[in-house]
Deep mutational scan, measured.
Amino acid sequence: MAAAAAAGAGPEMVRGQVFDVGPRYTNLSYIGEGAYGMVCSAYDNVNKVRVAIKKISPFEHQTYCQRTLREIKILLRFRHENIIGINDIIRAPTIEQMKDVYIVQDLMETDLYKLLKTQHLSNDHICYFLYQILRGLKYIHSANVLHRDLKPSNLLLNTTCDLKICDFGLARVADPDHDHTGFLTEYVATRWYRAPEIMLNSKGYTKSIDIWSVGCILAEMLSNRPIFPGKHYLDQLNHILGILGSPSQEDLNCIINLKARNYLLSLPHKNKVPWNRLFPNADSKALDLLDKMLTFNPHKRIEVEQALAHPYLEQYYDPSDEPIAEAPFKFDMELDDLPKEKLKELIFEETARFQPGYRS
């Protein structure tokens, strides 16, 4: 834990890192770190609560700039109880001085990944967590956004079992017609939660990839272990087919990539493993919904509104309290091709509203 900075004593240090967030945020305490930044909790002297502050230093890398800009653009436009918001952003007053960006968010005690390492969940908890994931996802999908990296560590939890989806750095506007060349190379989302079509096709992607990830998360809540822990690309596919069985001819016809289709045709026939054999203690309604989410063919996979209306979630289902976005989200430009200098300018502009004396 960093010592509390005395008023006016300059930035606090946390594990050798400068955290320049005073005077409003003090009493910093280390939480963890990701690929390009550290997260601390801090005391907000204005709202009198502890908050989470993520320090991001992305400006050396085009990919990190892209992810940072995506996350900020999306989260500043989203407003939903099951999606983490941005409360404040701290950065230098000029673009030349801006080396880091500090993002202030609600402090959540833990995440689903940490929880599943230590606790076996009751059916009631599984049901409530799944409902909140789908409630947040309904809003995301209504904005025409794909999260693309749903996994237990991106689901934040607090002691009252509130759940918030975080990390929109890989999110995209849904565009089933656009052929994202190089899709697989830039697709760094965790393999275990990846839909089979991501490994088999490169053309376009749809909201059904997020539903697949939610199915993987439900299976993990039922058993405290990942359902498809593939060691590499082909191993991942083999794990999936080992449980779902061989795809039907109709399902194979959806695979545009001939090499991928021929690979699947070359494999020995596998039978589907019954879900109640894998999860003998699970609620039968939970397994019915799991089956509809972990469907090989993305066109037959359940959609988020149908999933919310499934009998497993009937005690929570309330369409009048499951809000959607006001308007579909649009990125003005494809960020993939922009140089990091341009992305830095866009991050600077996007964060201006939090600067003292800002006038829109």
Results as ranks from 00 to 15, higher is better:
residue 124 D to W: 00
residue 349 E to S: 02
residue 55 K to G: 12
residue 40 C to S: 14
residue 303 E to D: 14
residue 324 I to S: 09
residue 331 F to W: 01
residue 278 L to A: 08
residue 281 N to L: 09
residue 188 V to N: 01
residue 253 N to Y: 13
residue 153 S to F: 03
residue 306 Q to R: 08
residue 136 G to P: 01
residue 49 V to G: 12
residue 35 A to N: 15
residue 215 G to F: 05
residue 21 V to C: 08
residue 117 K to F: 10
residue 191 R to F: 01
residue 9 A to Y: 01
residue 74 I to T: 12
residue 238 N to H: 14
residue 132 Q to G: 07
residue 113 Y to H: 03
residue 263 Y to N: 15
residue 30 Y to L: 12
residue 195 A to S: 13
residue 261 R to D: 03
residue 82 N to Y: 14
residue 56 I to Q: 15
residue 71 E to Y: 00
residue 87 N to K: 15
residue 59 F to Y: 14
residue 312 Y to C: 00
residue 53 I to F: 14
residue 246 S to F: 09
residue 84 I to G: 00
residue 348 F to W: 05
residue 260 A to T: 12
residue 10 G to E: 12
residue 327 A to E: 07
residue 165 I to C: 02
residue 40 C to F: 14
residue 92 A to T: 13
residue 268 P to I: 01
residue 299 H to G: 03
residue 288 D to G: 00
residue 167 D to L: 01
residue 234 L to P: 05
residue 324 I to V: 00
residue 27 N to M: 01
residue 105 Q to S: 07
residue 319 P to Q: 15
residue 174 A to Y: 11
residue 129 F to N: 07
residue 281 N to D: 00
residue 234 L to D: 09
residue 268 P to T: 14
residue 37 G to L: 01
residue 210 D to V: 14
residue 305 E to S: 03
residue 184 L to F: 10
residue 93 P to G: 09
residue 33 E to Y: 02
residue 174 A to W: 08
residue 264 L to S: 00
residue 241 L to P: 04
residue 276 N to C: 07
residue 59 F to W: 10
residue 194 R to W: 04
residue 192 W to D: 04
residue 24 R to Q: 11
residue 74 I to L: 10
residue 185 T to I: 10
residue 134 L to N: 03
residue 144 N to V: 11
residue 134 L to R: 04
residue 238 N to R: 05
residue 111 D to S: 01
residue 205 Y to A: 06
residue 244 L to T: 07
residue 319 P to W: 10
residue 172 R to A: 06
residue 52 A to M: 13
residue 324 I to H: 04
residue 273 V to C: 04
residue 280 P to S: 09
residue 326 E to S: 03
residue 131 Y to K: 07
residue 53 I to L: 11
residue 233 Y to G: 02
residue 188 V to Y: 02
residue 343 L to T: 10
residue 31 I to K: 15
residue 238 N to M: 11
residue 207 K to D: 06
residue 309 A to H: 01
residue 208 S to K: 09
residue 163 L to V: 07
residue 337 D to H: 10
residue 325 A to Q: 06
residue 326 E to Q: 12
residue 79 R to M: 09
residue 55 K to H: 13
residue 185 T to Q: 07
residue 218 L to Y: 08
residue 345 E to M: 06
residue 143 A to R: 02
residue 93 P to A: 12
residue 183 F to M: 09
residue 76 L to N: 09
residue 276 N to P: 03
residue 109 E to G: 01
residue 56 I to Y: 12
residue 357 G to T: 01
residue 233 Y to V: 07
residue 28 L to P: 05
residue 153 S to V: 00
residue 299 H to E: 11
residue 274 P to I: 03
residue 352 A to T: 13
residue 125 H to T: 02
residue 16 G to V: 15
residue 166 C to I: 07
residue 350 E to F: 01
residue 54 K to Q: 06
residue 53 I to W: 07
residue 165 I to L: 06
residue 266 S to E: 03
residue 102 Y to M: 07
residue 87 N to T: 11
residue 241 L to T: 07
residue 53 I to Q: 14
residue 171 A to F: 03
residue 14 V to W: 10
residue 143 A to M: 03
residue 52 A to S: 14
residue 91 R to E: 02
residue 305 E to L: 06
residue 70 R to Q: 04
residue 264 L to E: 02
residue 177 D to L: 07
residue 54 K to S: 05
residue 282 A to F: 08
residue 304 V to C: 09
residue 276 N to V: 10
residue 76 L to D: 00
residue 339 P to R: 09
residue 113 Y to D: 03
residue 263 Y to W: 04
residue 339 P to N: 09
residue 10 G to K: 10
residue 135 R to S: 13
residue 42 A to W: 06
residue 97 Q to R: 15
residue 317 Y to C: 14
residue 43 Y to H: 11
residue 303 E to L: 00
residue 75 L to V: 12
residue 49 V to T: 11
residue 256 I to E: 09
residue 348 F to Q: 12
residue 112 L to P: 05
residue 145 V to I: 05
residue 276 N to E: 11
residue 195 A to Y: 00
residue 88 D to N: 13
residue 7 A to E: 09
residue 355 Q to N: 07
residue 150 L to P: 12
residue 20 D to M: 02
residue 41 S to I: 04
residue 287 L to A: 03
residue 134 L to K: 06
residue 70 R to M: 02
residue 18 V to H: 14
residue 244 L to I: 05
residue 301 R to S: 14
residue 16 G to Y: 04
residue 262 N to H: 09
residue 269 H to R: 02
residue 45 N to G: 13
residue 333 M to T: 01
residue 279 F to Q: 12
residue 127 C to A: 08
residue 153 S to C: 13
residue 326 E to R: 01
residue 259 K to G: 08
residue 226 P to L: 07
residue 306 Q to V: 05
residue 207 K to G: 09
residue 71 E to G: 15
residue 299 H to P: 07
residue 221 M to G: 02
residue 304 V to A: 11
residue 154 N to E: 08
residue 219 A to Y: 07
residue 243 I to A: 02
residue 212 W to R: 14
